Amino acid sequence: MKEIVILGSTGSVGRQSLEVIRRLPGRYRVAGLAAGRNWRLLAEQIKQFHPRVVSLAGPEEARELAQHLDGGGRPPEIHWGEEGLRAVATCPGAAVVLSAVTGTAGLEPTVAALMAGKNIALANKETLVAAGELVMGLAKAKGVRILPVDSEHSAVWQCLSGAPPGAPDRIILTASGGPFLHEPADLSAVTVEMALAHPNWHMGRKITIDSATMMNKGLEVMEAHWLFGVALDRIQVLVHPESIVHSMVEFVDGAVLAQLGVPDMRLPIQYALSHPGRWPGPVPRLDWRRAMRLTFLPPDTRRFPCLKLASAAARTGGTMPAVLNAANEVAVQAFLDRRLGFTGIPVLVERVLDAHRAVSGASLEEILAADAWAREYAQRALDREQLPCCRRD
């Protein structure tokens, strides 16, 4: 039985990962769990899965958890903060680290896990956006694998199964288009509630907003570039509102393979854990007896300028993608906090990008420094500049 640790166990992907593991007794044992501030949910997960080591965001949450577990059998080691994330990520005996921490907070523990020789089931796209060259180089040097968990990259991975080197000519990533695909071009009246109402997927708040702006698709292009070694100009984004085709690969002979399924993250999570085998599925099957429409549209970068910003940052390279991601995290949180309007997200991101001079071949320290600079610059811009404000109705 393989041992696994989950970083971000109380988030959307983390909870679904534990659901997959619960359904498949005898396949995996949970050795470690890392959460944010939701110590109560982590306590429930500890009682179900009995990990050896756990971590929370801060000392207060760790203290609350310890008091709650006191006297309830043999408790796990309890850590907190960045050191806690690293402790869980490097848990002795664990073969796989499922990284589902949101944002660049997942970068350092993922690097620590790679250094410890762990295979990574990666649901944290920001790790490869910010430090793709470094992370993939480290994985190669350590002889470990990066197993994609994002539905789009899992689809590409499945389509490439058995393909010889050089056979894929183009990767086609599909995007739902989010809740505003058919709305008027002026999105200045968008509220937080409107942006969180995704038509197809049930995800965390941050990734749901990224889907609404299509920033997520720009980040996924960069992730695909590093995961599969395909040039940026050979990766295309298509809007596919039905979210049935999760991505496609076009080969040098013109053949196109696609992976289809219901929009449910449990399927790519399970495939990352079962690879190279396949286990009985955790999700409903497509009903081919019913009429089905599959629509594909080119993305409108005027409606979704974040996609264009991400493309420009990817072409520049160096520390620019890390800055893009950091600025976007600040902008999305400001929108969720109702300090910034929906159309202000790309405005703020662009201002931070314009102020940054990219560093090529950056070390982990330089990447983290660029990330910190971008966050500080974005926060100052929020405070001092005239940016579109959030609708409150």
Rank of each mutant, 00 (worst) to 15 (best):
Lys2Asn: 12
Glu3Ala: 13
Ile4Tyr: 09
Ser9Thr: 02
Ser9Phe: 01
Ser12Asp: 07
Glu19Met: 07
Leu24Ala: 07
Arg37Cys: 08
Arg40Gln: 15
Gln45Asp: 06
Ala57Trp: 05
Arg74Ser: 03
Arg74Gln: 09
Glu82Cys: 03
Leu85Ile: 03
Cys91Ile: 00
Val97Arg: 02
Ser99Thr: 15
Gly103Gln: 03
Ala130Ser: 15
His153Ser: 10
Cys159Glu: 01
Pro164Thr: 01
Thr174Met: 12
His182Phe: 14
His182Lys: 15
Glu193Lys: 13
Glu193Val: 01
His198Ser: 09
Arg205Ser: 14
Trp226Glu: 02
Asp233Ile: 01
Val249Ile: 07
Phe251Met: 09
Gln259Asn: 08
Leu260Gly: 01
Gly261Asn: 06
Met265Trp: 08
Arg266Cys: 08
Leu267Asn: 02
Ala272Tyr: 09
Pro280Ile: 06
Trp288Gln: 03
Ala291Pro: 10
Ala291Glu: 14
Met292Thr: 14
Met292Gln: 14
Pro298Asn: 12
Thr301Met: 07
Phe304Arg: 04
Arg315Ala: 15
Gly317Tyr: 10
Thr319Glu: 15
Asn325Ile: 01
Ala327Arg: 04
Val330Asp: 05
Val332Gly: 00
Gln333Pro: 00
Leu336His: 02
Gly341Phe: 06
Thr343Cys: 15
Arg351Leu: 15
Ala355Asp: 14
Val359Phe: 08
Leu364Met: 12
Arg375Gly: 09
Glu376Leu: 12
Cys389Thr: 13
